[in-house]
Simulated assay, not measured.
Amino acid sequence: MRKLTYYIAASLDGFIGHPETGDGAFFAEEFLTGDFPVFMIGEYGDTIPTASRKAVGIEGAPLTRFDTIIQGRKSYQVALDMGITSPYAHLRQYVASRSLTTSPDPDVEIISDGLVEKVRELKAEDGDLGIYLCGGGDLAGTLIEEIDELVIKTYPLLLGSGVPMATAGFALRFYELTSCRTFDNGAVVTTYRTKAR
């Protein structure tokens, strides 16, 4: 069974994006210093968009962690606004969207209905590489029961409001800490796996 990993950047108060635009890059870029980007490229290089992989020296590098990405419509729109229809060409790409009915690229499959079922199908495939969940709080909330691993890059700042990490409704969902690493820029990367109950 393959893992679905929610790999996300967040503020100390648990927000992942601007309250109006949903964009989170405005605060993440501030912390791309010291040993932190080296870690991200080395450990999570598969999550770097294809166009940026060349810039960081890993163009054509073999995949080590993920071979599939599921992203939300808003995350995908960031690439579309830059004229990029296949932002993660090195991965199998799925976009969860009810508003986008046809894909602008043959390498990107739109999932309009049956998202949870599609994720279960992808997780049931054979293979050692996992599935990267890249999206906003609504997408994570929809798939909360399917998420096997959380990798949270926590940046040392408060936003006060914004897009929450997951909008799943109140429930006690327990996770086990499997690793925690601190960096000289103040960022902390914590990894949790879903705790069986």
Rank of each mutant, 00 (worst) to 15 (best):
L4C: 10
L4M: 14
Y7N: 14
Y7K: 12
A9Y: 09
A10V: 10
A10M: 14
S11E: 05
L12Q: 09
L12E: 07
I16L: 11
H18M: 11
P19R: 11
D23N: 12
F27T: 14
G34K: 11
F36L: 10
F39L: 08
Y44H: 15
P49W: 04
T50C: 15
T50M: 09
S52V: 12
K54W: 05
K54E: 06
I58S: 07
G60M: 02
P62A: 00
T64D: 09
F66I: 04
Q71T: 00
Q71N: 09
G83L: 05
T85S: 14
P87W: 03
P87V: 04
V95G: 02
A96T: 07
S97K: 02
R98L: 11
R98E: 11
T102G: 11
S103P: 06
P104M: 00
D105I: 02
P106V: 07
D113H: 15
L122V: 04
K123V: 14
K123Q: 06
E125V: 06
G127D: 01
G127V: 04
G130Y: 01
I131G: 01
I131N: 00
L133T: 02
G136E: 03
G137Y: 03
G137Q: 05
L139E: 00
L139I: 07
T142N: 10
L143T: 07
D148W: 02
E149P: 08
L150R: 01
P156N: 06
L157M: 07
L157A: 05
G160H: 02
G162R: 04
A166Q: 00
F170L: 14
F170V: 12
A171F: 10
Y175A: 09
E176I: 12
S179R: 13
T182Q: 14
F183M: 10
F183S: 06
A187I: 15
A187T: 13
V189S: 10
T190N: 15
T191G: 12
T191A: 15
T194Q: 12
K195Y: 05
K195T: 05
A196C: 07
